[in-house]
């Protein structure tokens, strides 16, 4: 279905293409230029809109990372309005006010179908203090590494190694979610975030780049061994965080019990 996103914007201006071609065939340069320019603008708008829609869908899979976002859909919408007004004014010969009205109708229609993006960048967290911001930054950085890791996995042909990398990516996300639920875990997981995650991402990236050039069984075996170790370490990290969370909860329960008996 995502292949059809924004298809309407590619289809509606098609008469302009025929107009430009007929203008060329009949030797009418003004018709060719007017219709052709309008068509090119509409196609640019449709392309931007489509990229914007796909980029919004991709952002929804991210939990922590805040990628730089250009409001492509909004630019696409404004360009659609502009192209409509310009075509009405130049290629059809309508007056300025009527052309403006056409542009406004197109922009409104675009907004109702695709929706213009809200101004300003959304903030994924309620970052009320400096420490919360640090945790959020660490999580965002870690998620970027996981995205790189998953990207590297898609380029590796060996299904077993690909599966292992994907599993490591999932384990990593589970740990990030644990840290997000209890930010105090960040201190306990600093080695995971700063050393292991960075290391496995670099190794996976390096393997993805070089394994096609040098088909070495030894390299493949080494990579397999290191991935198995990483899986164990990630699993151990997950269990350790869970255990400390349970211990913290135990302490909290004990404290509450004592407070209640003192009443």
């Amino acid at each position: 279905m995502s292949r059809l996103k924004g298809a309407l914007l590619f289809l509606l201006p098609l008469p302009l293409l025929f107009g430009a071609l007929i203008g060329l065939g009949t030797g009418r340069l003004d018709a060719f230029l007017g219709d052709g320019a309008g068509f090119v603008l509409f196609m640019a708008a449709a392309s931007l809109t489509r990229r914007g829609i796909l980029s919004v869908q991709a952002q929804q899979t991210l939990r922590f990372a805040r990628l730089e976002r250009i409001p492509l859909k909004t630019i696409g919408g404004l360009l659609t309005g502009f192209a409509t007004g310009l075509t009405a004014f130049i290629a059809v010969g309508h007056g300025f006010a009527l052309s403006l009205a056409f542009a406004a109708v197109a922009l409104l229609g675009f907004h109702l179908v695709y929706g213009l993006e809200p101004l300003g960048r959304p903030r994924p967290f309620d970052l009320s203090d400096e420490r919360a911001r640090k945790v959020a930054d660490a999580l965002a950085e870690a998620e970027r590494k996981l995205i790189e890791l998953e990207r590297a996995a898609t380029t590796i042909a060996n299904p077993e190694l690909k599966l292992r990398l994907q599993r490591i990516g999932r384990q990593g996300r589970v740990i990030l979610n644990q840290i997000a639920d209890r930010p105090t875990d960040l201190f306990r997981a600093r080695k995971f975030l700063n050393v292991y995650l960075e290391g496995v991402q670099q190794v996976a990236d390096g393997y993805a780049r070089t394994h096609r050039l040098a088909d070495s069984r030894e390299l493949e075996q080494n990579f397999r061994t290191v991935l198995a170790t990483v899986e164990e370490v990630f699993d151990e990290q997950h269990r350790r965080l869970l255990k400390t969370d349970l211990m913290d909860l135990d302490v909290q329960i004990e404290v509450l019990k004592k407070q209640l008996t003192q009443l």
Binding site: L8, L9, L12, P13, L14, P15, L16, F18, G19, I22, A31, G34, D35, G38, F42, V56, T80, A83, T84, T87, A88, A91, V92, G93, F102, A103, V105, A106, L108, G109, F110, H111, L112, V113, Y114, G115
Partner: peptide
């Protein structure tokens, strides 16, 4: 993010047809 309702989207398609499509057709016939 919330998507426009079905009614709003149908109205949007009608507006796009009566602006982008109409202007393109007019340019073709001009």
């Amino acid at each position: 993010p919330a998507r426009p309702s079905l009614g709003a989207r149908i109205l949007g398609v009608v507006l796009l047809l009566s602006s982008v499509w109409l202007v393109s057709c007019q340019a073709l016939l001009w």
